[in-house]
Nucleic acid binder design. Sequence first.
DNA 1: ATCGTTGCAAATGTTTTGCATGTCA
DNA 2: TGACATGCAAAACATTTGCAACGAT
Lengths: 132, 132
Amino acid sequence: MTRQKRAVAAVLAETNEFTSAQELHARLREHGERVGLATVYAQLRGLADTGAVDSLRSESGETLYRRCGLSGHHHHLVCRQCGRAVELDAPEVEAWAHTLGQRHGFRDLEHVLEITGICDRCAAGPPRGATV
Amino acid sequence: MTRQKRAVAAVLAETNEFTSAQELHARLREHGERVGLATVYAQLRGLADTGAVDSLRSESGETLYRRCGLSGHHHHLVCRQCGRAVELDAPEVEAWAHTLGQRHGFRDLEHVLEITGICDRCAAGPPRGATV
DNA sequence: ATCGTTGCAAATGTTTTGCATGTCA
DNA sequence: TGACATGCAAAACATTTGCAACGAT
């Protein structure tokens, strides 16, 4: 357990939003924590492997990470503007995906479901004075 | 309408599987068509924008493209081994995603659903003599 | 002392861009 | 002709890796 590991865990714990490795690295610097970018990547990969964080690929090609609340398989509802995320349990979809896969002769089924939208806060308009 | 545009459309029409820009470019060379890599990327981006092809990001970070059969919004069941894809219509999921998003105060909802598995052909085992 | 972790810089791989040239309408 | 497409090489970008120094147990 190193200082860097703790630091990465700390920034991850700070937010509920999906964040890129680059941004997390920047945030660490802001906090005065000196952690190498390569180390951040290594940590995140490790955490994602063990399921301690969720990861998904943004439209722009970055991999985004978020500390994981639910332990098992689940989905996300993510705000396209602010990145705020809600974790979802979706038994119906699980069943549906499974049935449908089998009907087509597929096995070892997995699936990815991400719902995106604009959350109520963002829809309410940018905070007064913001230059967005 | 240029020779290159036709050529890209042609290779796309050849297969039902998700294919990377790099691979499509290679395939064009095999066909003796001389098309620049940058042009292939430009074409694919354009086609994806107009919805003429579907695109998704592979786990390895490449963007994969596939000519689109269904015109509207739909999902895919993709074989992780051979890339074979089945296009799916999923009204139940549409409704579910929409309801759930609204319940959480999100608007302008979109969603991505990809189901992956091993298709029957691949599950039947590798052809005899293969060294997998 | 040992072995995994770190961190820099360089490498990798995909995609984009600048810009001169070619080509369709 | 005149705007737009092309294509090369170089840039931009995220991510990974090689390897020497470091630090936790």
